[in-house]
């Protein structure tokens, strides 16, 4: 009897090993382990055996059943896994095919840079305000110490506008600086604002000149604001935008509404100061004009220049973008060619 069981076991295991598909599992189970299966029949016959033989045979038969059940489970797992693997293999795709087209939008590169510039000043405590693009001569020039017939007016070629086309006092602001005066007229110190916006110049358009461009004006007024603070603030800004390793140069320059006046440059990141085409062989890239707010401007808005000091600055986001991204033609900004705009995703 035991021999028969052993033989049966070997036969069952051999058949099980030979199975190749999940569907073949069930017939095998029925054949050996089903209600009428071979092993079940043997177990059922145990009762007919003499008691001493029954125990020995019973033990072997039960062990065989347990073994076969375990082997069955294992085989079943193997086959199912193989089947799943096969099924997935049939669904294999070429993952190097391109992504499905999805129309992506993006902000204008000027907006992108403006956001960076404004963020840098906002984290230094400046607030963002705006002002009109169509301005009075007074705010654009006179309140900034540039009276009519002042030779400094040549520094800003101006578009004048009027309802009837005749010259008057209305113009397109040539810089965002009128907002220094507008902000100070409306508030009391301390002042810390940045003013982004479009500006206009009567200028023939070429790769480095545009008749419309953006500026960001900045103004900080308080009781204890110094030239050294201006240097610190503007250097911090330059490093936030252009990287911590940038060197910053301040040199004297003239703007009628500041005293002392400043021109700020960073060292050329292409040649590292050695001189190259980008920096016109100077090693420096000018990025903004600045200075301590002129005492006469403070007086004009009713700030006592003996009590308050402050600094102002102005910079051009297009210039910053051109430097950051290596753009060589300012006209690309406002001709709105998607092939240009979509490079700044």
């Amino acid at each position: 009897m035991i021999d028969r069981i052993t033989e049966l076991r070997e036969q069952a295991l051999a058949e099980l090993r030979a199975l190749g598909r999940v569907e073949e599992i069930e017939p095998w189970r029925i054949k050996y382990l089903g209600k009428k299966g071979a092993v079940t029949s043997i177990l059922r016959q145990l009762g007919a055996l003499p008691p001493d033989e029954r125990r020995a045979v019973g033990q072997v038969a039960n062990e065989t059943k347990t073994l076969l059940e375990a082997q069955l489970a294992q085989k079943e797992n193997e086959l199912k896994e193989a089947a799943r693997a096969q099924a997935m293999e049939r669904e294999r795709i070429d993952v190097t095919l391109p992504g499905r087209p999805l129309a992506l939008g993006q902000v204008h590169p000027t907006t992108r840079v403006l956001r960076e510039i404004l963020d840098a000043f906002v984290i230094m405590g400046f607030q963002i305000v705006e002002g009109p693009e169509v301005e009075w001569d007074y705010y654009n020039f006179e309140a900034l110490n540039i009276p009519k017939d002042h030779p400094a007016r040549d520094m800003w070629d101006t578009f004048y506008v009027s309802p009837d086309g005749r010259p008057g006092e209305m113009l397109l602001r040539t810089h965002t600086s009128p907002n220094q005066v507008r902000v100070m007229e409306k508030t009391r110190p301390p002042v810390r604002v940045v003013v982004p916006g479009k500006c206009y110049r009567y200028e023939a358009i070429d790769p480095s000149h545009e008749s419309m461009f953006y500026q960001v004006e900045g103004l900080a007024i308080g009781t204890n604001i110094t030239f050294a603070d201006m240097k610190g603030t503007l250097s911090a800004f330059a490093r936030m935008l252009f990287g911590g390793e940038r060197k910053v140069r301040f040199r004297c320059d003239y703007f009628p509404f500041v005293e002392p006046g400043v021109d700020m440059s960073i060292d050329c990141y292409v040649c590292k100061g050695a001189g190259c085409r980008l920096c016109g062989n100077t090693g420096w890239l000018e990025i903004m004009g600045a200075g301590m707010v002129h005492p006469k401007e403070l007086e004009r808005v009713g700030y006592d220049p003996a009590v308050y000091t402050g600094f102002a600055f102005g910079l051009g986001p297009e210039r910053i973008a051109m430097l950051k991204y290596g753009i060589d033609d300012i006209r690309l900004f406002y001709s709105n060619d998607l092939r240009f705009l979509q490079q700044f995703r």
Partner: peptide, 18 residues
């Protein structure tokens, strides 16, 4: 401008905020 702007130190703003 005679001592050179680079000779003037850089400091961060302090004082009252608006």
């Amino acid at each position: 401008r005679t001592v050179g702007y680079d000779a003037i130190p850089s400091t961060m703003l302090d004082g009252r905020l608006p």
